[in-house]
């Protein structure tokens, strides 16, 4: 009887893994296909369309694609995107943690009201503020600069503030109190005690902030109209314009290349991403 159960369990385990891997391959097939196709020589792209592995792999498409367009190479687009993403990510994470400490630990008049306002902004469609923001930034002559994309990140972002507030609430208050007894003021308490303890939440926030700013499309589309200011998103869009050139290999290569930084960070830090999301506070 025990033997029968064990063999049945083994069989179920095998079925489970086959099923999960099967669906999993199906899920990532398009991305593998994109990567594989970027390495196929021109002929193979059409003759062996659905294959993942090229017969004669070549890096030629990367060389061709990297040249970019209008005499601007992808090096420029990568540099622009890196500046925007790194500054935005750092600014968002630190400002959000700073703000979160105020909401999580301090008592002040109208706190509940402001906290509710912050949560409400999570649900505001961006379009409701887009047009006046554009008018404001163009009056400041910020159009065709990175400022309209970077500066707002210094004011925190509701999603991250909320996430870090939830995290700080789990940190024992006795730590703050001990620091205060030692004569720390609240700013010192935040920078020396709370912020270091929030590292896991801040890393999770940083990963999301980086992904979002790396892939951001609408803001650059509105604010950056000169090709030398383009981010990778804008460059890929122009590069792959169906009415323009049709060097498919180069398009595949540059598209795939733009995904690599995201995947590298994902593989390196996925533990934080997948474990880092807490649903505390979603419950009623």
């Amino acid at each position: 009887m025990v033997e029968v159960n064990r063999s049945k369990r083994t069989r179920n385990t095998i079925i489970y893994h086959v099923l999960v891997i099967g669906i999993g391959i199906f899920m990532i097939y398009p991305i593998l296909w994109l990567g594989g196709s970027s390495l196929k020589p021109d002929g193979e792209i059409w003759t062996r369309m659905s294959a993942i592995f090229p017969l004669k792999p070549t890096l030629q498409h990367y060389v061709d694609g990297w040249k970019g367009f209008g005499n601007i190479s992808f090096a420029v687009f990568y540099k622009n995107t890196a500046i925007i993403s790194v500054v935005t990510t750092l600014a968002l994470v630190f400002s959000s943690a700073f703000i979160a400490y105020g909401f999580a630990r301090l008592h002040f008049p109208m706190k509940k009201f402001w906290f509710a306002c912050m949560l409400a902004t999570l649900m505001l469609p961006l379009q409701i503020q887009l047009i006046p923001q554009y008018i404001m930034f163009s009056k400041l002559h910020w159009v065709n600069s990175f400022k309209p994309i970077i500066i707002p990140s210094f004011f925190g972002r509701a999603f991250f503030i909320f996430m870090i507030v939830q995290f700080i609430r789990g940190v024992p208050r006795s730590l703050d109190e001990a620091a205060e007894i030692d004569g720390c003021n609240r700013f010192k308490t935040f920078f020396t005690i709370i912020m270091p303890l929030c590292t896991p939440a801040m890393i999770t926030a940083a990963i999301f902030a980086f992904y979002w700013s790396w892939g951001e499309f609408l803001m650059p589309l509105i604010y950056l109209n000169k090709p030398k200011l383009y981010t990778i998103s804008l460059a890929l869009r122009s590069f792959s314009d169906p009415s323009g050139q049709t060097d498919w290999g180069a398009i595949y290569a540059m598209s795939f290349l733009s995904l690599l930084p995201v995947f590298v960070i994902f593989i390196a830090l996925q533990k934080y991403l997948i474990e880092g999301i807490s649903t505390e506070g979603l419950k009623g």
Binding site: G215, F217, L236, S255
Partner: peptide, 8 residues
């Protein structure tokens, strides 16, 4: 993770 990117 590459969800809404232009590349995808």
């Amino acid at each position: 993770v590459v969800g809404s990117s232009v590349a995808v």
